[in-house]
Nucleic acid binder design. Structure first.
Length: 263
DNA sequence: ATGTCACAAACTTTGTGA
């Protein structure tokens, strides 16, 4: 199976690129983040015409997650319905059964600045996520949690660790909260022995992509039965090089799992 | 040198979030 996660920064703006990528790579499942559209506005017909079922959880201008699958899409569930500091509940988590897998798309809050109310919200979200992962694992299926975590797990996951001191995405608090999620029983697939952890995000500004100044903040986490099935985890930079790109590139994992199993 | 992008208000420009 080929599993992918991609923060597209608006599915409306990125639809041509997403359709081209689906046709070229034919992932079994693609997890999306920052769809930035209301449920009724998701370009469902175009994606279905490409051969994918769609589950989306959108809220409009910001956030929004989706699961695209060509191996079945059942038991769809949203979650992590905690309120942001402004009192609104944001669309940041969507899980489904796809073939043999339980799989979830997550968009972790950015956090804005250390000590900001939205930073506290980010940490609270990750604590809720830990509990949610524990419950998904209790379902007994091979489980994958993929998405934009807005955390670089290690200093080697950012282009200049010194430049990030005092910033979000690298703080000990965020890394501890991510470690807590992993402690529920999932593993960072791109960081497995034999794989090469690569940047997944490059700021639009200042030519960061051209200059190779990126961060590894998009992750695929897997349960032990997924880990034992991992063949290759890689970042496909080609859509980041295209015209009108997202600031993130898709992260893919090829697994020795039978997509027909477990239905 | 925060040098880009996307969205939506009620605008051909600005505020917001990333």
């Amino acid at each position: 199976m080929l599993i992918a996660t991609w923060n597209v920064n608006s599915i409306q703006a990125r639809l041509p690129l997403v359709l081209e990528w689906l046709d070229r790579r034919r992932p079994d499942v693609l997890l999306l983040q920052e769809t930035k559209c209301l449920p009724g506005a998701f370009p469902r017909a175009e994606v279905e015409a490409a051969g994918y079922q769609v589950a989306d959880h959108g809220e409009g201008r910001w956030n929004g997650v989706a699961v695209l699958s060509q191996v079945g899409l059942d038991e769809v569930a949203t979650g992590l319905d905690l309120a942001a500091p402004d009192g609104r509940v944001e669309a940041r988590y969507l899980a489904a059964d796809c073939g043999p897998l339980r799989i979830a798309s997550v968009y972790v809050p950015n956090g804005r600045e250390l000590g900001h109310p939205y930073f506290t919200y980010k940490l609270a979200f990750l604590e809720e996520l830990r509990g949610r992962v524990a419950r998904e694992l209790a379902g007994g299926r091979p489980f994958i949690l993929g998405g934009d975590f807005n955390i670089a797990p290690k200093d080697s996951d950012v282009f200049d660790p010194a430049a990030f001191v005092g910033q979000t995405h690298v703080s000990p608090e965020e890394r501890a909260a991510l470690a807590s999620v992993l402690g529920a029983g999932v593993v960072d697939l791109a960081a497995l022995p034999g794989q090469t952890p690569s940047y997944t995000y490059w700021d639009y500004r200042q030519g960061f992509f051209r200059r190779g100044l990126g961060m590894r903040i998009d992750l695929l986490l897997g349960s032990p039965d997924v880990v034992s099935a991992v063949e290759l985890v890689e970042v496909d930079r080609s859509p980041r090089q295209a015209a009108r790109p997202s600031d993130h590139a898709p992260l893919t994992a090829r697994l020795t799992l039978d997509s027909r199993a477990g239905a």
